[in-house]
Write a protein that binds this DNA or RNA. Sequence first.
DNA 1: AAAGATTAGATCGTGTACGATTTAAATGCG
DNA 2: CGCATTTAAATCGTACACGATCTAATCTTT
Lengths: 152, 152
Amino acid sequence: MTKPPSSQSGADLDPFEDFLCFSVYSTGLAFNRIYKPLLDQLGLTYLQYLAILALARQDGQTVGELGEKLFLESNTLTPLLKRLEAAGLVERRRSTQDERVVRVSLTAQGRRTAEEARCVPAELLESTGLSAEGLGELNEALKKLRGQLRPG
Amino acid sequence: MTKPPSSQSGADLDPFEDFLCFSVYSTGLAFNRIYKPLLDQLGLTYLQYLAILALARQDGQTVGELGEKLFLESNTLTPLLKRLEAAGLVERRRSTQDERVVRVSLTAQGRRTAEEARCVPAELLESTGLSAEGLGELNEALKKLRGQLRPG
DNA sequence: AAAGATTAGATCGTGTACGATTTAAATGCG
DNA sequence: CGCATTTAAATCGTACACGATCTAATCTTT
């Protein structure tokens, strides 16, 4: 492996300065890298962390409901949820009313992990040194953009 | 596969409203989904498209230089570049001065593909219906954020 | 020049993403 | 009721990401 991608404040090193899609993409990678060491301590990946948080807010969701919140589908979620189940953090049960549906709920250990995970973002945002207002505005702008980015 | 994640304008469907990292993450997924049908016509993935663009701006870059621009390392780039080579779009050659270094250059076909790829973002941004100023500001904010998100 | 350190890529294993397909269960409709 | 349609998950194949490790080439230092 080569050296980690280094920060470059020089002018012409980034040929995608004006590509919004690239800014979103690379900022996502950067977030992932920041989160990873914190989440490693919890034994979670970034997506697993999001899934656990979503279940902490509303337990017993179906795979489809979880997918709506995470903007993902069963082909991504099913393997992820099986890993969380293997790790003892969630339970997957077919609904008795509708056997097509799988409901996912946190185990006791899953709830403990969710509790620990809750304080991760605070540590992290503090380390960015950016203002709360600025981050809030950025968040709103991204949500609006995401809403516009719909196939069709 | 379930139905595609649907747009939801309701209030409480997204439990991560206030998570900037999630907004960045999910907007990245949304961009990917928008780009995919356009790039499928070129036979490129999103990352392959970025690599081709980077090479079109500066041909004959090393794997490491390319990685600095894309914020990626050889463990991601090497397989990607091999696929582009197999597709006949790039050539990979070890430098004769320093045999550790691999230089990547576009083939004639690669340059044609790069030319076609150049007009993709315009089509796309038009479809978002967002103002150029707003997108520019968002871009600046993201670049600043990305710059702050550094391990350590 | 020889030995150790550094560097550039490549390789490997795990975990997302996602299109396409499959399976099984529920629903609709004549 | 019976059968086509729809739906929810699961499965499969391909392509990223990335930590860890490996290999080979260059540099350092004596």
